[in-house]
């Protein structure tokens, strides 16, 4: 039997290549900016987990003889106004900032996803009531509410980020509710009803997995906002309390020494910028990759 060899660039070959590469991951990883952003996020996560291992100094150790120094062999990124090692504070700050953002995203998703599923699937009066509440929360400026709650409960990063989570919950609610309404009309949900599945089982097993992808996109985009919210609240003194460091609180203290040591402002600012950019890039990349799946692969 004769083996057929395809010419190097036939339509068939392109079609075959396209088929093989059509998974979500491969489409995502074909974009260099997304790959880079994913690498950044991976590095940040590692830093957050391993901060005590990799930090060269204790982040709260003061050395008043070496205040506001520039980079040196002992302090790679210099020292701050109390002589603390800036690199170590940034590394530990990653842990605080990402942890706080994770809390806010978890609260937002934890509230928004189940309520969105219920409202979208059951509809009726419940949907009406929940949607009005969501609209009301959305109409309040997020940071202002967070500030109010943090002031009322006492300044603590946990309180502030719980408030931020509540403010971001309607975003998840809306995305999930909308997708759920689409999925609810699908024949496979009717088929599940007809096979006698309980409502909870249908929501958990048949609806949730099929609204999962927009939730993932939303998680990444919300994470970026949460980092900014944390930085903003800490900058106002409502977040993490001294001597602990987060990216935002480092900015706050450094502003006073802007003229003597501009690096103290620039470094945390740069880290915040990179982190937010990375989260948004991955979120956008995911959204594009998902959107293209519905169309003809191009």
């Amino acid at each position: 039997m004769k083996t057929v060899t395809l010419p190097p660039d036939t339509a068939l070959r392109r079609l075959m290549r396209r088929r093989r590469d059509d998974s979500l991951w491969s489409r995502l990883l074909r974009r260099r900016d997304v790959v880079l952003a994913l690498a950044v996020l991976g590095a940040l996560a590692l830093v957050a987990l391993l901060a005590p291992v990799i930090a060269p100094h204790d982040p709260v150790d003061q050395d008043l003889l070496h205040r506001l120094e520039g980079p040196s062999a002992a302090h790679w990124l210099g020292t701050d106004e109390s002589g603390r090692d800036v690199l170590s504070r940034l590394l530990y700050g990653t842990r605080v900032s990402l942890g706080a953002s994770l809390l806010a995203v978890a609260v937002a998703a934890g509230l928004g996803v189940p309520l969105g599923l219920l409202a979208g699937y059951l509809g009726g009066a419940l949907d009406l009531a929940l949607s009005r509440v969501a609209d009301a929360v959305l109409s309040i400026p997020g940071l202002v509410l967070a500030i109010a709650i943090a002031t009322a409960l006492g300044p603590s990063l946990t309180n502030a980020m719980l408030a931020v989570g509540v403010v971001y919950a309607p975003g998840f609610y809306r995305v999930v509710r909308g997708s759920t309404i689409t999925v609810r009309g699908q024949t496979y949900v009717h088929a599940a009803i007809v096979t006698g599945c309980s409502t909870w089982r249908i929501i958990g097993r048949h609806v949730l997995p099929n609204v999962g992808t927009p939730i993932i996109v939303k998680v990444f985009l919300t994470f970026g906002y949460a980092i900014l919210a944390e930085a903003g609240l800490s900058f106002l003194g409502l977040g993490v309390q001294p001597p602990l460091a987060s990216w935002g609180s480092m900015l706050k203290r450094a502003v006073r020494y802007l003229e003597q040591a501009p690096a103290l402002v620039i470094l945390p600012g740069l880290v915040i910028l990179i982190a937010v950019l990375a989260f948004n890039t991955v979120g956008d990349g995911l959204r594009d990759a998902l959107a293209r799946r519905d169309r003809e692969p191009s």
Binding site: T187, Y188, A191, A192, V194, R205, H206, P209, G212
Partner: peptide, 14 residues
Amino acid sequence: MVFQDPMAGLNPAM
């Protein structure tokens, strides 16, 4: 019951 549209009748995530 067997439905009209088999393309939408099965849960794509299962």
